[in-house]
Write a protein that binds this DNA or RNA. Structure first.
Lengths: 136, 136
DNA sequence: TATACTGTGTATATGAATATACACACTTAC
DNA sequence: GTAAGTGTGTATATTCATATACACAGTATA
């Protein structure tokens, strides 16, 4: 089971590499694939596997550490945080603000609540399609 | 009624100026403040009012023209596109953008789709409660 | 046609984001 | 202590997005 099973960089995804790495690690943690305390690939191993510089991987790991998702110890390696902070109160607040704004917008249009929920379902489905596309 | 009543640049908003201008013009059209065919401030007038370069305003106007929101004629000025459905289309677009932002936020914190929909339902219910309160 | 508006094209400055190399420092196990 | 892992700090290259100046061109009107 090598690193590529977990992390890979998309050619079609034009977002920066360090962000792609961050997202995929977050995703693994959210799914429970990588448990609290578990060691994750070293920045050198990750860099070699992806054929990129260690500094780029380090940047991804550093920002994830600032977010509280992972911890890094010099000379030892990087690990999923004991209590990975995936959904801080702040993040949930931001989510609610977006939903509230959507409700306001729907009200402005005169869109019934039922159809607002339907629209959310549609957009979620579109996302799934796009995800399939990009992973082909 | 000067231009500042409609358009202004935020110091705290760190997004580029041309995007802020585009958003605010779109919003005016969505609200119906600026009707189809109506003349909007000239590039030069807008630039002077905001104390920025005409080129920056031109960029905003050019992209809005590509989107079909406005039309520009050399020597004459810029006008809201002659499309009566534009306002409605923009309102729906704004709604979608809020929902997309919510989906992004949910994915970031690893919130399952099911729970995102539940959260929307909860917030809608809260709104109904508040509405009852305020109408007592 | 002169004036005073309007928008346009080309060329450029600036800063921020992204990715990098390389020399350095820590940890572990032999 | 030394080898083979690990991460780190500094300095730099490169690219792209943003914003700009200035000379040019169209339109309307007196």
């Amino acid at each position: 089971m090598n690193i590529h099973t977990y992390i890979n960089l998309s050619q079609t995804d034009h977002r920066p590499m360090y962000l792609q790495i961050m997202d995929q690690i977050r995703h693994r943690v959210a799914l429970g694939d990588w448990a609290a305390g578990q060691e994750i690939p070293s920045i050198r191993a990750m860099a070699a596997a992806l054929s990129i510089s260690v500094i780029t991987v380090k940047r991804a790991y550093l920002e994830l550490e600032h977010e509280g998702v992972i911890v890094t110890r010099q000379g030892k390696g990087s690990f999923i945080a004991d209590n990975p902070d995936m959904g801080s109160a702040l993040r949930h607040k931001e989510l609610d603000q977006h939903l509230e704004a959507a409700i306001d917008a729907a009200q402005l249009i005169g869109l019934p609540e039922q159809e607002l929920q339907t629209r959310l379902r549609e957009l979620l489905r579109q996302r799934q399609e796009q995800h399939k596309e990009s992973s082909k």
